[in-house]
Amino acid sequence: MAEVLVYVDHVDGAVRKPTLELLTLARRLGTPVAVALGAGAGNTAAQLGEHGAEKVLVHEAAEYAEYLVVPKVEALQAAVEAVSPAAVLVPSSAEGKEIAARLALRIGSGIITDAVDLEAGDEGPVVTQSVFAASYTTKSRVTKGTPVVTVKPNSAPVEAAPAAGAVEQLAVSFSDKATGTKITSRTPRESTGRPELTEAAIVVSGGRGVGGAENFRLIEELADSLGAAVGASRAAVDAGWYPHTNQVGQTGKTVSPQLYIATGISGAIQHRAGMQTSKTIVAINKDPEAPIFDLVDYGVVGDLFEVVPQLTEQIKARKG
C-alpha cells in the first residue's frame, strides 16, 4: 500500500491535535509515515504510532528554530525523495501553508490548501474545500506530481489506530537557501489555559456589542464554564479589546467547532467567513435584524449583559 507523508506539528515532542486528525485522513489514502522535525521530534513517536503512523522520520537540528520555514521545506523534500509518497499532508497553519507551497514547487507538484475533507479517488485524493466565505463547497484534485494538501483543524476525528510508530532518522543536508531568514528572537505567547481557538470543540466570541476590553471578562467566564476557546470579531480586535490571535473571520482564524456562540456580533461577511461551517451556531444580539440570526440554530434577541451572565450561571448550576 502506498505511503502518505504527514508533517507533524509538535511543541517539544507534544503532538498537536490537527496532526492526529491528518493521520486519520492519511489512513484513507494509504500507510501514514510521519515527519517530525526539531527539538523533541524523537518524543513524538509513541503518540503518532497510537494514531496510525507506521514510521516516524525524525530529524533534530538547531536550524529549525533559528531560521524561518525553509529548513522544514528541505527536510520534507528529503522525506519525499526517501519515501516517494502518494500524497503529502500538512496542517493548515500559516506556517504549514508556506512550507507546503514551497515543497510543492520544489517537487513539481500541485498544491491544495485549507482542505476540510479528503477521500481516496481513482486519480488521486479528492479534496473538499469551503470557499467564498463558506458559501460554496468545492471538490478538487492535484493533477501534477505528488499531491500536497494542507488540511484545516477539525476536519476529521482523532482515531486510535495502533501502528508500529518506528523511528527512523531522516538524512537532511541544508542548502544555503535554508538560512536566509534568521529568527533573532522568539517570545512565546502566555498560555491562557483555554483550548486553542482553531482546535476547540466550543468557541465563544465577542464583538462590537461587548463594548470594551474589560467587558470581555463576561465572555471569558462563559467560555470557561463550557471549557471553550474565546474568539473576537474584527471590530473588537481593531478596537483593541482583544488580541488579534483570537480574531475569527476572513483575516483571522477560521473555526469549525461543534458549538459556536456569538455575542454582540452582527455577523458581517468578514466574520461569517470564519465561522459559518460550525456545527451548531448560537447568537445573542440586541438587534433582531442582525444578519447573524440568519445562521443560528438558536438565537436570543436581548442585552448580552443580561443574557450572558444568566447563561453562565445556568451552565455552572447544571454542571454542579
Partner: peptide
Amino acid sequence: IVKDEGEGGKQLA
C-alpha cells in the same frame, strides 16, 4: 429565535 424577557439566558441553557 427568542426575545429575552428576563429568561433568555435560561432558555439558551
